[in-house]
Design a protein around this nucleic acid. Structure first.
Lengths: 251, 251
DNA sequence: TTCCCTCATTGACCATGATCAATCGCTTCT
DNA sequence: AGAAGCGATTGATCATGGTCAATGAGGGAA
């Protein structure tokens, strides 16, 4: 009587979820997952599409399954600063709050695994493993925010660009697994436009462009095209980023 | 047989703790408080004294009972950026981590209510009310960090100073209770030196000084002395801060 | 193919805030 | 009282990155 599962339905099962081991549900038991599974739903967004606007009431929250999302704040005269750049497995939305103080926009095609806020809060209250993981993730984000503050407040334009590339390199290395510190050169795929980078780094698009050129002329990067960057010597890049960088990519 | 409690011992009882209603123990029951009380201890620091250094192993964490603490990051060539400014009831230290990626320094005389990290983690695991409050506090800090990022990345020197004063005004108003938005003018006591402000705002000390002078000449503030600022018209200050500022001080 | 649109690059010039340096005012120590 | 020390202010000059403007390069759509 029951129809076979369609392909996209199979993909939606938590057991085969690509972020099962890193998302907010990482520590959840089978039972807990089953409970989450019963109340979750998915939503997709196109590049450029707004997910929520600052101040707006938000009735859902959840995990970024796939794609890149930017969080940004805009001043009344139009100046804009990115305040978060979210990748797969990152958590979007704020429990215990009904609005959000920034715009969230899909940068690539995005897929979200969502819960209604009230329901999620209820589950969270009764499920310490979720709360623990969420706390852990927020602590990590706070660390990242603090590195970002150092970048925004004290680094030069060139260091900002180099630092951004190191951040992307780190993510890439993590995804590709393996320590990846030394040895073979990296090829990075930049997930965002020059404009978004400018918003991320507190620069203008022109300065971003100029500093890419400068790093290229210095031999620190090679631009295959505007979105693909080869890094012949990661140490040189980390040096240009002003990192006390001793260690490898990970950790 | 038992000696009467000395004054400072009475002060150390959680029931009369000045931050009992805002700290990490806010939601804790009598029983839970008793448990925390049995493992807590206090430590005091002088202004300028280092509490922990970046990268150092930290075996304790806890609440700031009294005073002001700065968290800051320093680059190898000496450039410094403050990444946190903590007041009474804020939580210091990172559960589940054995070191901290910034220096923590006492700015005023400081009193900490501490726990050994392992012990605290154990209690936390068994006490959802603590974990919940901690999550809440981290979410608030993340919000503050994001506002700070906008300030660092996009605001002018003048806006940075004005924004800082608004932040202090907000804290002062909260402490003095009452909405405090309109009506009587504010007198602010700046908790930090010009140098610390420069580190906070991503400026040099000279620029901080010049912008204080500029705001004074514009009639937006009155300097009773270098550490005391009167604000005749809060709206004018919020305007100078580039806030979309409609609402009052609180919220 | 041509047009158009978006994203990126480059150039010329300018303004904001940094740097270097002198001075001031207040507190503390002798 | 005088000297030393520290935080703060002010001035003169410079450099980094922003602004305004033109051009280039790639990717659909007709």
């Amino acid at each position: 009587m029951s129809k076979p599962l369609l392909d996209h339905q199979i993909k939606e099962r938590c057991a085969t979820c690509p972020i099962r081991d890193r998302a907010v549900c990482t520590y959840s038991s089978e039972d807990e997952i089953a409970r989450l599974e019963s109340i979750k739903f998915y939503r997709n967004y196109e590049p450029g599409q707004e997910i929520v606007a600052a101040g707006e009431n938000v009735e859902f929250l959840g995990s970024l399954v796939e794609g890149v999302v930017s969080l940004s704040k805009t001043m009344s005269d139009g100046r804009r600063q990115m305040v978060g750049l979210m990748f797969a497995s990152d958590f979007l939305g704020r429990p215990m709050r009904n609005s959000v103080p920034y715009d969230a926009v899909a940068i690539t095609p995005v897929r979200l695994c969502l819960f209604r806020r009230r329901q999620f809060e209820k589950v969270m209250m009764e499920t310490p493993s979720i709360e623990r993981r969420l706390l852990e993730m927020m602590l990590d984000e706070l660390d990242a925010a603090r590195d970002w503050m150092l970048l925004l407040g004290r680094k030069t334009a060139r260091e900002k660009i180099a630092s951004f590339l190191v951040i992307i390199a780190r993510r890439t290395a993590l995804k590709a697994s393996g320590n990846g510190a030394e040895g073979k050169e990296l090829e990075l795929e930049l997930p965002i436009t020059r404009e978004a980078m400018a918003d991320y780094l507190g620069l203008t698009i022109e300065t971003v462009s100029r500093q890419f050129t400068a790093l290229r002329k210095a031999g620190i990067i090679v631009l295959s095209d505007a979105r693909r960057v080869r890094v012949p010597d990661l140490m040189a890049l980390m040096d240009a980023a002003g990192e006390d960088g001793d260690g490898g990519l990970v950790a």
